[in-house]
Structure formats: C-alpha cells, structure tokens
C-alpha cells in the first residue's frame, strides 16, 4: 500500500488557541477518506496545512512522498484543492474562471477549453454560462461546483475537498459523488471533510475523526465504526451534550 497523502504531526497555535495538535493521518492511494469532526475541531486548519495554504508551527505533509513545505511546487502540482468559504475571482464567469485557472497553471489553451466545456456541462453550469452569470452571482451550491471544477481541471492525483457537499442540491450531490468515484476508480485519491455522517458512510472507505485539534480515530470505515453506525461512534468519541428534560421547556406551544 503506497501513500497518497501523509499528514505528519501537523500543529498550529493561533495566538494561544491550539487549532491542530499533532495531527497524523495517512491516506492510501486509491482510497476515499472522510474527515469528520464537530464545528471548530480543526478539520479546515489541518487541511489548510496539508495543502500548503497555512504554514504549520511544526510537522509537515507529503503528497506521494513529496514534502508540501519543502518542495511546494512539485507537491502542489499533484494536488487538487477545494477550500471552504474563500473568495474566487468574483467578476469572472465560470468559464472565464476555468480558462484563467488552467492557463495560469501552464496548461495548453485547447486542453483548457475542451475540459472546461465538459466540466461545465457535467456540473450543469452551462446554462448559467450561457446567461453570462458572474461567479459573484452564483448560489452557494454553484460556487461549490465551480470550485470543484477548478480543483479537477489539471487532473490532479490527490483531491482534497473541504465540505464539498454543503448547500449542494440532492441531484447535484449524486453527480458529484459520481465524479468523485470516477476520479478514484481512475487511480486518484480523495480526502473530503464533512459534517454529514451518512454521506461519509456512503461514499468513503476510510474515515478519520478529529476533535479538539487531535485525531481521535482513523482507519477503514469498518475499523472505526465497528458494529455500530458512524454517527454512534462519532458521538461516543466526541461526547454528547444531553438535553435535560427541564431545559428548553419554553419551546412548547
């Protein structure tokens, strides 16, 4: 088993708040790994450090054995990244964005054009393009889809997606899952973060649970969840806030 993405002791301290505390994770080639954790668990911070967006205080990450922080250019060429909640060149249309992005990455113009046409069609963004809609005017789900298109455009070997299914409608979500399975079947490796346990159970074959900046469990889906559901395992690991019988009584009508 070779390793597509390895996170090795990634640690980040934001002026006193330990957002990630020695995060270790190994993503084998050809796997679909789900990163789950409560809000503020350190998923996004860990991903940012793993793909070279945020310099860790200590630890490092490697893509197919290439250190992201020592050889960023070589490592990043193999990565496709979809961050959560960041700006894009907002005053471009979807196709303009893909064209800009592909050419900036040094791809040939005709390759960029044919891949853009295909991605826009499959992700059902072609109608918006026909209307000349700017990315600024896209809905949240459409932003996720054009973001995924930018992550896929250069045919990376490893995809790292932060909350790719957030605000995406059920039909588009099926399309997205199909794309991601196709990507892995063709030899790619995938890491997604998500709050939705059922989605991770359905799509992923490996899972890691992160809370309080630490990896609490990781392994194959069967190893992590055992005989119970992933949600039960997650709640057991992270801890549950029980709602007492007397609390929130004022919600009754």
């Amino acid at each position: 088993m070779t390793t597509a993405l390895r996170l090795d002791g990634l640690t980040k301290d934001f002026s006193g708040t330990l957002a990630a505390d020695h995060v270790d994770l190994t993503v084998p080639v050809g796997s679909l790994t789900g990163l789950v954790g409560p809000n503020g668990a350190g998923k996004t911070t860990s991903i940012a450090m793993a793909v070279g967006l945020l310099r860790p205080d200590s630890g490092t990450a490697a893509v197919h054995g290439v250190d992201v922080w020592a050889e960023p250019v070589r490592a990043k060429a193999m990565l496709g990244v979809l961050p959560d909640g960041l700006a894009l060149p907002e005053r471009l249309t979807g196709a303009e964005l893909l064209t800009y992005w592909g050419l900036l990455r040094g791809m040939a113009a005709d390759v960029v054009r044919s891949r853009s046409v295909e991605l826009m069609r499959i992700l059902e963004l072609d109608a918006a393009e026909e209307r000349g809609l700017l990315v600024l005017e896209y809905s949240t789900g459409m932003r996720k889809k054009i973001g995924l298109a930018t992550a896929l455009l250069h045919a990376p070997r490893v995809l790292v997606l932060d909350e790719p299914f957030e605000a995406v409608d059920p039909v588009s979500a099926r399309v997205l899952r199909g794309i991601l399975r196709r990507f892995v079947a063709a030899g790619g490796s995938l890491v997604i973060s998500s709050h939705v346990m059922s989605l991770v159970e359905d799509l992923c074959d490996r899972v890691a649970v992160i809370a309080g900046g630490r990896v609490l469990a990781d392994g194959t889906l069967a190893e992590v969840r055992g005989a119970t559901s992933l949600e039960d395992t997650f709640v057991r690991l992270v801890g549950e806030r029980e709602i007492g019988t007397g609390e929130l009584a004022w919600l009754a009508h």
Partner: peptide, 12 residues
C-alpha cells in the same frame, strides 16, 4: 478578498 488561495494552491 481571499482569492489569493488560488495562487498558493497553484504555486509555481
């Protein structure tokens, strides 16, 4: 805004 992430991710 934060669009600089694209250059960081596509660094060369």
């Amino acid at each position: 805004g934060t669009a600089l992430w694209q250059l960081v991710v596509g660094q060369s």
